[in-house]
Simulated scan of single mutants.
Amino acid sequence: MSEAETRTVTVEREIAHPAERIWRALTQPQLIAEWLMANDFAPVVGHRFGLNAEWGDLACEVLEVEPGRTLAYTWTGLGLDSVVTWTLTPVAGGTHLRMVQTGFLPEQKLAYHGARAGWPRYLDRLEAVLAALD
């Protein structure tokens, strides 16, 4: 299936924290658990990990790691086979954070709309975790 036949969810924010702090929250398992889901993540290309929530479990694999800049991993479960990519770009006063989840098939309306509603809430929680970091 071509990219034109799939849908993408993109969420972007300017966050008043340095990229290094955001990177910690995106890659340290105990911090990921605070804002996203329980996990056994490691920022190593090829590492397979799980994300576990009350609504289901996801099987994931790290695809790309560029410390402080880019992180990508598969997000597979509940009939969805997608890729989540995080991009961090330093800006005046903090970091521009971009999250893109690709791979929603046209018939996966529930998953697509769930992601559109869910990611902004996850990013709100991420910002709360960042504010509490040393």
Rank of each mutant, 00 (worst) to 15 (best):
M1H: 11
S2A: 07
E5A: 12
R7Y: 05
R7W: 02
V9D: 06
V11K: 03
V11N: 05
A16S: 13
H17P: 01
P18I: 05
I22L: 13
W23Q: 07
W23T: 06
T27K: 04
Q30A: 12
L31Q: 05
I32C: 01
L36N: 10
A38W: 01
D40M: 07
F41G: 04
F41W: 09
A42N: 07
H47T: 07
R48D: 03
L51H: 01
A53N: 11
A53V: 03
A53K: 03
E54K: 06
W55N: 08
W55A: 10
D57A: 04
L58I: 00
L58S: 02
L58W: 09
C60M: 04
E61Q: 13
V62Q: 02
E64N: 09
V65Y: 11
P67Q: 11
T70F: 06
A72P: 04
T76K: 14
T76Y: 06
G77T: 11
L78H: 13
L78E: 14
L78Q: 15
G79I: 11
S82R: 06
V83M: 09
V83I: 15
V83Q: 13
V84M: 05
V84I: 11
V84C: 05
W86I: 06
W86F: 13
T87N: 02
T87M: 03
T87D: 00
T89V: 02
A92W: 03
G93I: 11
R98W: 00
R98C: 01
R98E: 01
R98N: 00
M99G: 04
F104E: 09
L105K: 12
L105P: 00
L105G: 00
P106N: 10
E107Q: 13
L110A: 14
A111H: 15
A111I: 04
Y112S: 03
H113V: 09
G114Y: 08
A115N: 13
R116N: 07
W119S: 13
P120A: 10
P120F: 07
Y122C: 13
Y122A: 14
D124R: 03
D124N: 14
R125H: 14
R125A: 14
L126Y: 08
A128M: 09
A128L: 14
L130Q: 08
A132F: 09
A132S: 15
D134H: 10
D134P: 15
